[in-house]
Amino acid sequence: MYAQLVETGAQRVRGTDELEGQERVFQERIDAGVKIEPKDWMPEGYRKTLVRQISQHAHSEIVGQLPEGNWITRAPTLKRKAILLAKVQDEAGHGLYLYSAAETLGVSRDALIAQLHAGKAKYSSIFNYPTLTWADIGAIGWLVDGSAIINQIPLCRCSYGPYARAMVRVCKEESFHQRQGYDLLLALCNGTPEQKAMAQDALNRWWWPALMMFGPSDADSVNSAQSTQWGIKLFSNDALRQKMVDQTVPQAEYLGLTIPDPDLKWNEERGHYDFGAIDWDEFFNVIKGNGPCNRERLATRVQAYEDGEWFREGLNAHADKQAARGAAAA
């Protein structure tokens, strides 16, 4: 997902009855469905895990501007251009709300961005793939925003108040993005054979990376069990991925596109689609920095930040001057 492989620091998950004092009160509140707010006591592990999860999500929104921004200047109609511009602007806004949510946990946006630029913080693996054709913009909206929604709707009920509230705003916009992406592909699939081939090619390239967004199976992961107990993870990676496949297959059929998986088949007994094995080597390689665009995505963000240094410095200098003038006048 936008936050993949989040470390919690836990070796073993302790049940509520094994906890004592403040930690027990804290867990009882979560078990009772009461939201944790910034001023409440919280275990250090909970705070750190949330910072990692929320900042990974924020970084993903920001880096995610780049692959889509790649097509704004080439959008094939002015209406599609306006839709894409508005979408990318929304993503920057999501980054802002999420950094603000992380700031309530006592870490500044600048510090988080510094970690990203130093290569110490992750962002979603999906944004390290290139957008090669216009159809990729549709595929991202349909599959990537679609997967984001599946992951984030449950997070609207997560235990940390500011994160849950940020997710409510974000989810509303993501569902627009998904519909717009699908609509873009629908136009291609109803268009010329070349346009339809463009849509199929995009699906071929984005399908597997989209499934990888949910992360490897976490059925045996202590980190996931701990996050689940803390109420900041509500479903397993596999359950979310299955939901994505089940939801997407009929949508692909309606488009007349073929999902690039020969093992994809409806399983009557399970009531779900079975699907083929995911190439986790590819996933771990992308996470490690070997995706097709890791280097240029990060380099672009770092360059933007460095090029903007004089700008931020200038605004600060002006604010200082104003403050000094105010003090002199008083």
């Binding site: 920001i62 501007q65 780049l66 921004g69 704004i72 200047t73 002015l78 209406k79 251009k81 306006a82 511009l85 508005a86 990318v88 602007q89 920057a92 806004g93 980054g95 802002l96 950094y99 946006r109 672009t300 963000r301 360059q303 933007a304 930040y305 090029d307 903007g308 240094e309 700008f311 931020r312």
Partner: peptide
């Protein structure tokens, strides 16, 4: 302005640039 997408000197600037680009695009239409 849309060439600046994702490359502005601050996140607030990215948003403001996109917003201005979007207004001007609407006017152009």
């Amino acid at each position: 302005l849309s060439e600046w997408c994702g490359k502005g000197p601050a996140l607030e600037e990215d948003m403001a640039l996109a917003n201005t680009a979007l207004d001007l695009l609407g006017q152009a239409r």
